[in-house]
Design a binder for these strands. Structure first.
Lengths: 231, 231
DNA sequence: CCTGGCGCTTGATTTCCGTCAAGTCGACAT
DNA sequence: ATGTCGACTTGACGGAAATCAAGCGCCAGG
């Protein structure tokens, strides 16, 4: 169910995709990653709970990880989905020293796990690493800020539009894409109920967005962008 | 209208309140703050726009600064209000190098302005400073995360409750407090219309929250907290 | 004193989301 | 085939916020 192995050379290459590591000399990376392990999860697995002591952080190599909050009735609200290749929970090791959210790895996910102690030690001595950490945290900050703006200024249907637009790299014209998550999860991600997602998708049909199963076709990206801005 | 003066010793003491500086030896601070200036604004003043090149950051010594986003119709949405003594915009100098939001200083506000160039130079050489920057960014991240949770899980009236609870330092029992902002600004801050704020305050009367002008009295903090959690 | 503007409240109306309930569809096991 | 389970859709309903419009109290300027 769970396979653990030490870090291989291929993994180092993959890790260079992460902004946190991309600027570092390869040798520094190796020092940083002594003791790091690669884990593959055969089933959905809870990685940590909110409030747990944050003594490690992760990089997603394959699959996905859900970051979610729990209210007191146990209802979970998805805050973020981490896809390859990105790091997460790196911020929690500073300051509070506790994870602010819960994290669950999807079945089939592969993660690199990096111990915090060694990382913090290196951080003290390596100015370049410190700058990369700062830049990485800054990226998170921008992401969260954008999220807040979307919740404050956009209607649910507009948030859905923004989500869809974020799934494609195409610039304009037509686009086809596959939803990477169940609709219920997407609904939670953008802060609405599954029923409302259904109806929001209906409304988007009038501006050329069709959806069958997890296949979405956008007739004209620009008109969807226009809608997203309040057209 | 605008008074500028160099940094005095008193100011250094005040700046030690800021987490970003509190761990640094006094001598390091002085090096960091050569060229920093203190400004007092006699009228509402725009400090920067979203997208401007981020070549400095600020500490609020007195008054307040509004951070806000603008949609394309020019409507502004308040994202955060910075009170003394706190720093802001320190994150923008890294990575993108652009401010993500607009900032306006309220009439009567006093700010310390710190140039980015010298700061970044020191950052490269001073590991302790780097750690403080990381911790400071982490604090922002936690704040933003909390904000997102409130928007996703709380009703407008509950968000108002959370806002009120954040204004007092008392633990339980009764509390009286003064609103530090106009109700229209508070409404924008918590993401609703002014009319809705009025009605939300009405609803809170049933659990012992009364409001006349900018004076708010909370009969029982615990029952307000209970309401905030969904009671 | 009057007047105008501003911040805030109140009322009426519409729209839209959440909720509950029922129904459809496909995958998969029996 | 049959049944069932889960994911999703659809319908009906109630409630709450946005919107539009009007009214009130307060203060500054004439």
């Amino acid at each position: 169910m769970l396979k653990v192995r030490p870090l291989a050379d291929d993994d180092l290459d993959a890790l260079r995709e992460v902004p946190l590591f991309s600027e570092l000399p390869r040798q520094t990376m190796q020092g940083l990653l002594t003791g790091a392990t690669v884990r593959r999860f055969g089933a959905d697995t809870l990685l940590f709970n909110a409030g747990d002591k944050a003594d490690r952080f992760f990089v997603v190599l394959a699959g996905m990880v859900r970051l979610f909050a729990l209210d007191e009735e146990g209802q979970q609200g998805v805050m973020e989905i981490i896809f390859p290749v990105r790091s997460f929970a790196e911020a929690a090791m500073f300051g509070s020293g506790r994870y602010p959210l819960n994290a669950e790895a999807e079945r089939g996910t592969t993660l690199v796990q990096i111990e915090g102690a060694g990382f913090l030690r290196q951080l003290r001595e390596n100015p370049q690493l410190a700058r990369d950490v700062v830049a990485s945290l800054h990226q998170w900050e921008r992401r969260l800020l954008k999220e807040i703006c979307q919740h404050k200024f956009l209607s649910p249907a507009q948030r859905l539009s923004a989500y869809l637009l974020g799934l494609t790299s195409q610039e304009n014209g037509e686009a086809s894409l596959q939803l990477p998550l169940s609709k219920a999860t997407i609904a939670s991600r953008i802060g609405i109920e599954p029923e409302s997602l259904s109806r929001a998708l209906q409304r988007l049909r009038t501006i050329g967005v069709t959806c069958q199963g997890d296949q979405v076709r956008i007739a004209d990206l620009d008109s969807l962008r226009r809608y997203c801005r309040g057209g």
